[in-house]
Amino acid sequence: MLGDLWVLMVEQSWALALLKGSVVTIAIGLIGMALGFLVATPLAIMRWRKVVVVSQLVDGYSILVRGVPGLLVIYLLFFGSIEWVKAITAAFGYQDSADNAYPYIVGVVAIAVISCAYSIEVIRGALQAVPYGLLEAAQSLALPKGVTFMRVTFPLALRLALGGINNVWQMTIKDTSLVSVVGLQELMRTAAIGAGITRSPLLFYCIAAALFFCMTAVSQTAFSSAERALDRGFRGR
C-alpha cells in the first residue's frame, strides 16, 4: 500500500504535478478574489446608497451571476470573446502571444466576476447592519460625510462583513477548478487526470481535498486574527 503510494507520487511524480496544480489554484484564487473585492466595494457602496440606475444594474448583475452555474460564466466569457480578441490582436500583430496568454486572463477574470457578485452582497449586507445610532452620533458631532464613512461606517461594516468575506474566499478558491475548461491544469483537474489514468480516484481526490484544506486552514488563521483585531471593544462585558 505505502509502496504503491511511493511509486505513484514520487516515481511517477504525481506529487509534483499536484503541487504545481496547487500553485495555479492559489495564484488564480488570490488574484481573482482581490480583483473581485476591489470592484465589489464601490459597487456595494452605490447599491447601499441606492444610487439610481447603477443600483438596479448592480442588482441585475449580482442576481445573474449568482443564479447561473459558474461553469457557464467561464464558457461564455471564453468562447464568446475569443473571436474578438483574435481579430484585435491580429490587427496589432500580437496574435501568437495573445493566443497563449488568453486562457489565463479569461480564467482570472471569470473567477473575479463570480467572486465579485458574492462580495457585493456580503458588503452591502454589512453596511446595512451598521447600527444607525452610531451614525447619528457621528452626525451630531458634525463629522463630514467622508470622515463618517471612513472612520465609522466602513470599519464597523468590515467587522460585520468578515465572516461573509471568509465564506466568499473559501468558495472562490474552490471555484478555481472551473478554469480547467479553458485548458489550465489546476489542482482539481490534475487530480482528475491522475484519478482517471491511475484508477485510484479516492486517493487522488482525497489528496486534493487535503491540499485545499491546508490552503483554507492557513487563510482561516489569517481571518481569525483579523476578526480578533476588528473585534476589539466588542468582546467581554
Partner: peptide, 25 residues
C-alpha cells in the same frame, strides 16, 4: 504555445481516459 502555426497539427484530447488518452504528470 498552442497557436495556429505552419507545420504543426494541434490535437485536442481529454487526457484522463486510461489506455486511450493519458496525460502524464
Amino acid at each position: 504555445g498552442a497557436s495556429a502555426k505552419d507545420g504543426v497539427l494541434r490535437i485536442g484530447t481529454e487526457g484522463d481516459a486510461p489506455k486511450f488518452s493519458m496525460a502524464d504528470p
